[in-house]
Structures are given as structure tokens and as C-alpha cells.
């Protein structure tokens, strides 16, 4: 056993030596970068990140690993990044909702908007409210009529508490004064499954996720939250033209890192993102997925975040929306 003691002493010594080692950021990135997606596969955040992953990874010269961490309407993934080392190796690939909406609707979140620094925003996914065909309504008016006559009978599925799909539906309910029960799912894909299977009556998300089912006739689009009618679906009315412009929230995707990340690290990521979004192949993949390229630098992203967060807070206060 004496030799064992010797070995463990050596280990301790080496440990002490190792403690003096400090990280160096000048050669960033020199290993794989994790992208934390706060929703399960196939939602807008996931789709967008998967589209840019290969190009972005080629530009940065290191692999990018996509990790889905769903839960708590995206809070779980957000918190995971907020708590991470600010070294640029853990990036939050999210929709706007985890930073602007849920932070206003959930009082006891473990993180705040200020825990994050922006790398940039890059894709927009326009929102749509859909229903399953075969129901007794085919248009927005018929749905509103039915819901008014049968309060509390309808249900809607959202991508989670505090997500854009939740907020869109709550604003929709308030606009028309309807009573529709909310069933939160962990992301767009499960919510879409639930409406396709008839477990809930309505679901809202971005066009990207729902368009294939709309085209195949499995879902009917009732109304969109886009600022103007969407070219691919010209027959779908907008909330704004129905007289509710304030009920138009859309999904946009951005990359964020923990707040204390060094500026030069963020800079490298931002430049790579900008270059990725200029790539023609990426742009065409975005378009084919049913979304729009919309790149904003960190400053513009920050501004958008703050103004949207403020607007959501006002709406929540005025309308009494809560999770």
C-alpha cells in the first residue's frame, strides 16, 4: 500500500500544478462548439440552426454540435447557456420567445435577458394559426363563431408556455374574446402532431413547420400574424387586416452567448454568421424550408430584443396574460 500512497501524492502534486493553468481565447475556436436549441427537433429554432450548421462550421473551421434541450417552454435550454462558461463554446440557438416573451410571462425564471450577449439574428419564420380539417369550421369567421357559441370547448396546442405560439394564441383569444384552453407541448413538432391527430383543435407556429401539412391538405390555415399576406399562401388573411395589428408576433431566430463572453470571441462568431447568411446555398435552403433570411448585427438584434421585450411586458400587463 505504500506505493499507492506515493502514486496518490504524485497525482495531488500534478493537480496543484494544473490549477495554475488559465484559458486563452486568442486561438478561438479550437474545438467543437455546442449549439443549444431549447426545443425538440423540427421546430423553427431547430430547423434554422440545422440549415446554417454546415456552412457556419466550415467558416469557423471547427465542428458545431447541435444539442436539443427542450423543457419549460425553452427556459431549460436558456438557463443552461446562461450558466455556461463565457468562452464561446456554448451558443444559444433560439427563437425570440425565450428572451422576450417567457421572461415577461414567467415570474420565477432562473435567468434574465441580461444574462445574454447577442451574436446576431438571422432568420424569420412568419406565424400562422391552423386547424384540422373536418372540423365544423373552415374559415376564421366560422371558428370565431363556433368558439363564441361553445365557450371552453376548444383547445389549442402550443410549443410551450411562453413561446411565440402560446403568445400568438393568447393575443388571438383576447382580440376576439374567446375561451380556448391551452395545452402546452414541448416544441412545435409535438404540438403539430397533436393537432394532426385531433387531440387539440388548433395550433399555431411558423409557416416553415406547418406548410408541408397545409399543402397536403392535412391542416387548414386560418390567419397569419405576418405584417402582410404571405406570397406562398395569398388566401390567408392577416391579423392586422382583421383589425388587430398588435396581435402580430413573429418568430425570429438568433444566436446568443453568455453575457460575459469576450468581445473578440463574439466578433468571430458574428462575422461567421454574417458570411453564412450571404451564402447562396444557405439562402436557398432557408427559402425552401419556408422561412426568410433576415440578418441583423449584434446591435440591431439587441435593439429588437429590448423593444420586443418591452412590448410584451406592456401587453402582459394590459391584457393580464399569464403562464
Amino acid at each position: 500500500m505504500r506505493q499507492m500512497t506515493l502514486v496518490s501524492l504524485i497525482v495531488l502534486l500534478l493537480l496543484a500544478l494544473g490549477g495554475s493553468w488559465a484559458s486563452d481565447q486568442s486561438d478561438y475556436p479550437n474545438r467543437e462548439i455546442e449549439f443549444i436549441i431549447p426545443f425538440p427537433p423540427a421546430g423553427p429554432a431547430d430547423t434554422a440552426a440545422r440549415i446554417i450548421q454546415p456552412r457556419l462550421s466550415a467558416i469557423l473551421g471547427v465542428p458545431i454540435v447541435l444539442i436539443n434541450k427542450p423543457g419549460g417552454g425553452g427556459a431549460l435550454g436558456a438557463d443552461f447557456v446562461a450558466r455556461g462558461k463565457p468562452d464561446g463554446y456554448r451558443v444559444f440557438a433560439t427563437t425570440n420567445s425565450t428572451l422576450t416573451i417567457i421572461t415577461a410571462t414567467q415570474p420565477d425564471l432562473p435567468y434574465q435577458l441580461n444574462n445574454f450577449a447577442s451574436v446576431g439574428s438571422y432568420i424569420v419564420d412568419l406565424g400562422v394559426i391552423t386547424a384540422r380539417p373536418g372540423s365544423s369550421w373552415k374559415t376564421l369567421e366560422q371558428l370565431v363563431d363556433y368558439a363564441k357559441k361553445n365557450p371552453g370547448k376548444l383547445t389549442y396546442g402550443s410549443a410551450g408556455q411562453g413561446t411565440v405560439s402560446f403568445f400568438t394564441m393568447e393575443l388571438f383569444k383576447l382580440s376576439y374574446g374567446l375561451d380556448i384552453a391551452h395545452v402546452p407541448f414541448q416544441g412545435t413538432a409535438p404540438a403539430k402532431t397533436a393537432v394532426l391527430g385531433g387531440h387539440v383543435d388548433l395550433a399555431s407556429s411558423g409557416f416553415a413547420s406547418l406548410a408541408p401539412s397545409i399543402r397536403a391538405g392535412q391542416l387548414i390555415p386560418l390567419v397569419t400574424t405576418a405584417p402582410k399576406r404571405v406570397a406562398a399562401f395569398p388566401n390567408v388573411p392577416t391579423m392586422a387586416e382583421k383589425g388587430f395589428p398588435e396581435a402580430s408576433v413573429n418568430i425570429w431566430m438568433g444566436l446568443f452567448v453568455p453575457a460575459k463572453t469576450p468581445n473578440e470571441t463574439i466578433d468571430k462568431l458574428t462575422k461567421a454568421l454574417e458570411k453564412t447568411m450571404q451564402d447562396a446555398a444557405v439562402a436557398s435552403a432557408v427559402e425552401k424550408a419556408g422561412m426568410l433570411v433576415d440578418y441583423r448585427d449584434p446591435k440591431a438584434t439587441r435593439k429588437l430584443l429590448e423593444s420586443e421585450h418591452e412590448a410584451v411586458k406592456q401587453a402582459v400587463k394590459k391584457l393580464g396574460i399569464r403562464g
Partner: peptide, 18 residues
């Protein structure tokens, strides 16, 4: 704990030895 400081090769060598 050694992994994070010493890196894989050194730490693993010591572990295997023990």
C-alpha cells in the same frame, strides 16, 4: 478532477497505473 487540469493523456496514464 484531474481530467480538466492535466488533460486526457496524463490523467489517463495515472488512472490506469493505479
Amino acid at each position: 478532477f484531474a481530467l480538466d487540469h492535466l488533460g486526457f493523456l496524463v490523467a489517463t496514464f495515472l488512472l490506469m497505473l493505479i
